[in-house]
Design a protein around this nucleic acid. Structure first.
Lengths: 132, 132
DNA sequence: ATCAATTGCGTTATGCTATAACGTGTGCGA
DNA sequence: TCGCACACGTTATAGCATAACGCAATTGAT
């Protein structure tokens, strides 16, 4: 999917996420955008839906938050499964991809005749800096 | 971890989940237990916390639901990462484990000096029966 | 040109998910 | 018997997400 021009709201949400150090919840984004006229959660969620669809933002299911894709120039929908390591101390997220894991999971799913559509791989723990 | 005797509430919640065809949300469990005296969400969540701790129940982050472990006689905490295939049509869940995926992810995390604590691997899509 | 369909937007209201904070009772070991 | 840990019950609240309405702008086919 090629990313179309972002609308005003989409840009605002995307900018907030880009400037953030780590993942943000929808309501945190909302608060950061009140000065720009945002009043309701739906304004955020609608923008996020599109950004997710375009593949420029990821949703972290285990912490109900959103983060910009770490591979700005590629299409995240194309490079298979995405995995995240989420630090529970500092909140930082490391995004990575592994074709082996990818294949292995896909093979298994195929053996079960399961048609995969969306995937979530999230590891929570402590990053190098925080584990000390 | 060996699973201690379950308390009354824990048993009730566990039974409901065991009899269910698929994953249930905490509030669905609550509704099913109103006849048994349950009145508040906390009664469910507290029981679930323990059942999760004992490893006899899994939490599905991507659908905010809970399901009994598919391997009643083993200790789910011991056989590494757990992955789930969740059918978005019928709601059924297939639980599986793969040491290769396991190792691969762990190696990567190790290379990043990331200390993993909890993991979530969930694939949503359509099962063999529903994909038709 | 016009009409219909689509898309984005704003607002209000609501529903679902999860936990905080308080108090009670019970069992058990020091 | 005192203190502690644990399960439990209740009320209240916090946090996450969407339904349903209406309006405006855009597009594109007739």
């Amino acid at each position: 999917m090629t990313t179309p021009m972002l609308t005003k709201n989409q840009s605002l949400v995307f900018d907030v996420l880009t400037k953030a150090e780590g993942p943000l919840s929808a309501y945190t984004i909302l608060d950061k955008l009140r000065d720009h006229g945002f009043r309701a959660p739906l304004q955020v969620y609608r923008a996020l839906d599109k950004l997710l669809e375009y593949g420029v933002v990821h949703r972290l299911e285990s912490i109900n938050s959103f983060v910009v894709c770490a591979h700005p120039n590629e299409d995240c929908h194309s490079h298979g499964l995405v995995a995240f390591a989420i630090c529970e101390s500092c909140g930082q997220v490391i995004e990575f991809h592994d074709h082996e894991v990818d294949h292995r999971l896909m093979d298994w799913l195929k053996s079960q005749k399961f048609k995969a559509e969306k995937s979530t791989i999230e590891i929570r723990g402590h990053c190098a800096g925080c584990a000390a």
